[in-house]
Design a protein around this nucleic acid. Structure first.
Lengths: 258, 258
DNA sequence: GCGTTAATGTTAAAATTATAACATTTAGTG
DNA sequence: CACTAAATGTTATAATTTTAACATTAACGC
């Protein structure tokens, strides 16, 4: 079998274009559309490199967020997900009806978003595309996306005017995530373009919550953006953490939840 | 069988939360996760109303763009898609390497976006979430999303500063879609918040392309945003259209493609 | 506690999808 | 034109998913 197949590639290109606007295509329809047998489409998919994957007889675009990353429920992954989920459950306890929330980029806060459907009315401010997509699906949540130039690495946007745009909004609670939390070196993330929006949100918000799992403690990442006592609340997932976080005399004590 | 099932709803909520961050879950894993049999999950899915759908033994979020709108390839739909696709192929002919494109909201221009992967370097400016998602997947295209308050009806954003933000960008070509094109009443769309960005793009762009299928001719929609001769090129899909569009003395003649 | 009903589990059969083997067609070459 | 090899089609078989029927367990009222 040859790895390069002119017509096969052409067929897949056609199918990719068909699927690009979203949706799924049954194998039988794909075959009809290309005027070949189902078997040929199957062979195309298995011999060529393509962005299409076959899911129970239907073709779907593999790069679509909801599809490919087939959630393989191995033991570790299940517990890892549970941890992320519990962390967000704790953060959820701080959210109240009518809040205007700043939601940071990253994957930490994503499990929180579907939970927001239980409220009657909320507003979410974000500069992350994945957050926006999750919130856009919620009819009860107003979404404000701060745009700019897109950075694929963090699925977020950057713009000169972002800080001033954030400051003009009446943000109630800022939920900030981080890639590193160190007592001495402060709180840091990977990408420098995230610093401005994080700092602006911290500066404006009435309540500042740092949401990080315990694996981030003692870690330092390239982009410093805040000190620990810039936050009113630290939401984390480990018993040991409180000692690290006892404030010396802040308005609100650092809160840690197991 | 009762339609309301407390535990069933709870299980589905749990599964929805699991899937909210993307990915798929095999029926067997979902059953294990909930501590019930596969059959119970099946029953939950068929008796309760849920955003989850079952695709070849795997659970996926139905509201994810790539998944639900199961592209049913009936005769008409196939030809309808072909029409949309051909329209975009024609628009594609106007795009050149290095362009900075303004891409309007709506579904008309979506099939164009996957085609942009054939270029080496492009920049896309948009105020629509669905456009942004399609472009975010392309590594060779820079994405500038103009943010603001989200309108679900048009999957797009609105903000006071949008017009000025557009005018600050060096937009090469503006690809504008419309819901109505009438010789006397001009070009119109459904939503008033789309008017400002469309007009700003038309005002700034070096070349202005109106991309509409012939079904929009002779139609008037609530929000007027431009006259026909504000455009340099009209890309459409019907023979009959040219007569409607012959300009009287413009820089570039109105171009119509069959 | 008993009886009733909803909820869930178990199993077998039907339908669908995946794989493999072999047959046929097509395209290119001397 | 015959020969070769790639590409595609066809068919049978295996694996998986779906459906349906019936068995079992749990919950609730009296």
């Amino acid at each position: 079998m040859s790895t390069i197949n002119g017509r096969g590639a052409l067929r897949l290109a056609k199918l990719e274009e068909t699927l690009a606007s979203g949706g799924t295509l049954h194998l039988r329809d794909a075959a009809e559309l290309c005027g070949v047998s189902e078997m040929t489409i199957r062979r195309d998919l298995s011999t060529q490199t393509t962005a299409i994957s076959l899911l129970g007889g239907r073709l779907v675009m593999a790069n679509y967020p909801g599809v490919t990353p087939i959630y393989d429920l191995t033991e570790q992954q299940a517990s890892h997900y549970q941890a992320k989920y519990r962390l967000c459950q704790r953060a959820l306890a701080f959210i109240e009806e009518g809040d205007t929330l700043f939601i940071d980029c990253g994957s930490t806060l994503i499990p929180l978003l579907s939970q927001l459907s239980h409220f009657h009315e909320l507003t979410v401010v974000t500069y992350a595309l994945n957050v926006a997509n999750a919130v856009a699906a919620l009819p009860n949540v107003r979404l404000v996306l701060l745009g700019g130039l897109f950075y694929a690495a963090s699925q977020s946007f950057s713009s000169d005017s972002m800080a001033s745009a954030i400051e003009r909004l009446g943000i109630n609670k800022a939920l900030i995530s981080a890639a590193g939390v160190d007592l001495e070196r402060g709180i840091s993330c990977f990408h420098f373009h995230e610093v401005a929006p994080k700092q602006a949100a911290i500066a404006t918000a009435m309540q500042r919550l740092l949401v990080v799992d315990a694996s981030k403690f003692g870690v330092v990442r390239p982009a410093y953006f805040a000190a620990l006592d810039d936050f009113d609340v630290v939401v984390t997932d480990e018993e040991g953490a409180p000692q690290l976080l006892v404030g010396d005399g802040r308005d609100l004590p650092a809160v840690t939840v197991t």
